[in-house]
Design a protein around this nucleic acid. Structure first.
Lengths: 103, 103
DNA sequence: AATTCATATGAATAGCATATCATATGTTAT
DNA sequence: ATAACATATGATATGCTATTCATATGAATT
């Protein structure tokens, strides 16, 4: 992998599973790896791999709590970012992106 | 390909070449396909493919001008979006994302 | 209408990211 | 120290995406 910052940023988001995790964390606040994996019905290993990449781009933060590592979304930038993105998606993509016809 | 809107949005951005095109259009205003391809040193065909996907997510707009199709960035949502994203990248990723060590 | 310029499309290969499996590391309790 | 729980890591095979090449479509000019 050899990405500049911005590319790495988008690359990390360009994956359903990682976006699901972010959405889950945005909703639930904080969660451990096992809880995330169970909720999204993915392997623990897969969740861990995804979280690592999210961590590298600082989309999420961790803190150790006993045996568990509790992940949280980066409230500072990611939350407002997602709100703005959803504005774009709502406005332009709800009907648009789904249908590859016309244009 | 079977993506929900939000996934499709990110998927489209999760590619260097498409991001380069958006950055170019943000900077230059409007450009035709050949000009884009030459500037970014990619094949005309590749540029066209990329632009189609950007169009499907409404990141860009087109208008026909003679033989040419002039592409422009979606000023309404994409520009402010990129500004906010760059805030995140500058703040968290300049040093962070590049180095996979620590954390 | 034929030619040239500009862009789009389709198909196939090449390239890369992800999912998976097995295992390692780390933490706490007994 | 060992066992049990929680998470991380590494390697590999699979699957998906992008690039490429060849060609088609569209527009304007002669």
């Amino acid at each position: 992998m050899n990405y500049a910052s911005l590319d790495h940023f988008f690359m990390t988001l360009g994956n359903k599973q990682r976006v699901r995790i972010l959405q889950l964390l945005a909703k639930q606040g904080t969660m451990g790896v096992t809880a995330i994996a169970e909720t999204l019905k993915v392997e623990q290993s897969a969740a861990s791999h995804s979280l690592k990449q999210l961590l590298l781009c600082h989309f999420v933060t961790v803190k150790q709590d006993g045996k568990e590592r509790i992940y949280a979304i980066n409230e500072d930038t990611v939350k407002p970012l997602f709100e703005q993105i959803e504005r774009h998606v709502d406005k332009y993509c709800v009907k648009g992106c789904a249908h590859w016809s016309r244009l």
